[in-house]
């Protein structure tokens, strides 16, 4: 909110699947160094919005720009190279490769394209960063659930993205792991990374997000600090239903 040009600007982003409008005229900005939470009940279109930003799905209408340059309509690989990197709702690793090679993949083809020893060094550093230092030689099939999430995060970071998209990265973790996960994301935030977080875990949202956009039925229904939106009457109604409002 300090600077004029946002890292990401979403204007009128709309996605229709046949007759179903999954995302309806979404507008929001993400500023530099900001962690933005994208929250809402199941099926409200959060993940679809993320898919629109990352280029996994084409937009039906609207534009998305990265630092003032439109990226909507570009294929996923081009958007990644421009500096938008993501994790997946269901963790996706490269099963035939080692932990290290999974991360090297992100370093070699991402926003900053490294190769050879440089890419390996970058990958080693990031594994250290996410808490998997020295585990690079393991095949990914032997990892615990949270470690697969760590590898995916390291791969995403390896290309040195300007904008990080985390799709329910904390989902499915037990309480201990959850605390580790939250601390990890907080350390990214302290590094000054710009992040969009699709998340259900309210503790994480409260402690990590600078700002939140709340979606319901494909539409933005509220925007503000976590404290503001979580006390908003319409947000409560969206989560809990009409009777409780």
């Amino acid at each position: 909110m300090r600077q004029a040009s946002p890292v990401l600007a979403v204007r009128g982003a709309t996605k229709r699947f046949g007759g179903l409008v999954a995302v309806n005229a979404m507008d929001f900005d993400v500023a530099e160094h900001q962690v933005m939470g994208l929250i809402g009940p199941n099926g409200s279109g959060k993940s679809t919005t993320l898919n629109l930003i990352s280029g996994a799905l084409p937009l039906t209408a609207g534009t998305i720009s990265l630092r003032g340059t439109p990226i909507s309509g570009l294929p996923a690989q081009t958007i990644t190279r421009k500096g938008v990197s993501r994790t997946f709702q269901l963790v996706r690793l490269l099963p035939s490769m080692t932990v290290l090679d999974n991360v090297v993949a992100g370093a070699v083809f991402g926003h900053r394209r490294l190769w050879g020893a440089e890419a390996r060094a970058q990958a080693e550093t990031l594994l250290e960063r996410v808490g998997l230092g020295g585990q690079g030689h393991l095949p990914v099939g032997q990892l615990t659930y949270i470690d697969t999430k760590r590898v995916e995060l390291a791969r995403t970071l390896a290309g040195d993205p300007k904008l990080l998209l985390l799709d329910e990265w904390l989902a499915g973790l037990n309480p201990t792991e959850l605390q580790i996960g939250i601390d990890l994301i907080r350390s990214l935030r302290d590094e000054g990374r710009t992040i969009i977080l699709v998340e259900h875990v309210m503790d994480a949202i409260r402690s990590l997000c600078d700002r939140c956009v709340v979606m319901a039925a494909g539409t933005k229904i509220a925007e503000g600090t976590p404290a503001e939106v979580l006390s908003d009457a319409e947000v409560i109604r969206a989560y809990l239903g009409d009777d409780d409002a």
Binding site: S54, G55, A56, P75, A76, Q77, T80, R81, S85, R86, F88, R92, L93, L94, P95, S96, M97, A105, G106, F109, G110, H111, R113, R155, G159
Partner: peptide, 15 residues
């Protein structure tokens, strides 16, 4: 090799 493993990941890694 990445494409052979997972084409979606490949595209989202910038390939």
């Amino acid at each position: 090799r990445i494409i052979g493993d997972d084409e979606t990941v490949a595209a989202h890694s910038g390939i």
